[in-house]
């Protein structure tokens, strides 16, 4: 029989609602069960749970409360991804997101803070095959953006996100945020076509969580990687505005090789 410990949680909140206490108790039960079943020592650290810091746990509770159905581990994983993409520390992302969540007004008829939405406009048709788009979408309050390339005027190749494959899809199924940029790549149509051909070969690839080192055509791919590699390998055009080992959606938008012809509103 493994040793059983009860861990009390210090939550820096003024008042804790009964529902939040239920969440806390539930989490303790899960962690404790994990220790009994799987651990051979101080398993608390190995369960994947973060160390308890003032503010962090309270912030996490706020976010979980605002996103019913999302588990603690899922929230931490998402924050880790966002932190990686934005160069922040995961805890900072959680705390900042919770502050923003509490500061937001609830939309009429809604039931919670919209922490990951903003994409509610169907993206218009492009002017040319090979056009690219940038959508200023955010998660947990951090604008990470999203990129894609038009394989035809009406279809898009994009890497949607963590756990998703690179897709070839109709644009009617793709919604972007207000303020999105549709851009043409300043080159010949023949080179745009070559980039499209290259992009189509990525359809079906798994998602690459690493934005910091994503200038490769091998293996999993993320959204800006699909666009950048399509043009770099397909046509020899480097769409990264600031160089380095990683290319982010905003880097493509800011590239000197791209020109905005439509801002979606």
């Amino acid at each position: 029989m493994l040793p059983f410990r009860e861990h009390s949680l210090h939550i820096a909140v003024g008042e804790t609602s009964p529902r939040r206490m239920t969440i806390i108790r539930g989490w303790v039960a899960v962690v404790t069960a994990g220790m009994l079943i799987t651990s051979t020592g101080p398993a608390f650290a190995s369960s994947g749970s973060a160390r308890i810091d003032d503010g962090f746990e309270a912030a996490l509770i706020v976010l979980l409360d605002r996103n019913p159905g999302t588990t603690r581990d899922e929230m931490i994983e998402a924050a880790t991804v966002v932190a990686t993409e934005s160069g922040q520390v995961m805890r900072e992302v959680i705390v900042a997101a919770a502050r923003e969540a509490e500061a937001q007004e609830l939309p009429e008829g809604g039931d919670g803070t919209r922490l990951g939405v903003g994409a509610d406009i169907v993206i218009p048709a492009s002017n040319f095959k090979g056009d690219v788009f940038y959508s200023p979408v955010s998660t947990l309050g951090v604008t990470h953006g999203h990129s894609g390339i038009f394989s035809t005027l009406q279809t898009i190749v994009e890497a949607p996100g963590p756990g998703k494959q690179v897709r070839n899809t109709n644009r009617s199924n793709v919604k972007v945020a207000s303020g999105s940029h549709q851009q043409v790549v300043n080159t010949t149509q023949a080179k745009r076509d070559k980039a499209v051909t290259k992009a189509l070969t990525f359809v079906g690839r798994a998602y690459n969580l690493n934005f910091a080192f994503n200038k490769t055509a091998n293996g999993a791919m993320n959204c800006s990687q699909v666009v950048w590699v399509a043009y770099k390998d397909g046509s020899g055009i480097d769409l990264d505005a600031n160089g380095g080992n990683g290319v982010y959606p905003i880097d493509i938008k800011n590239s000197s090789h791209t020109s905005t012809y439509r801002i979606v509103k």
Binding site: G69, G116, A119, G161, K164
Partner: peptide, 12 residues
Amino acid sequence: APQASTNWLGGG
């Protein structure tokens, strides 16, 4: 369902 490209929280 969530649109995959805008929802990184992995909800159902």
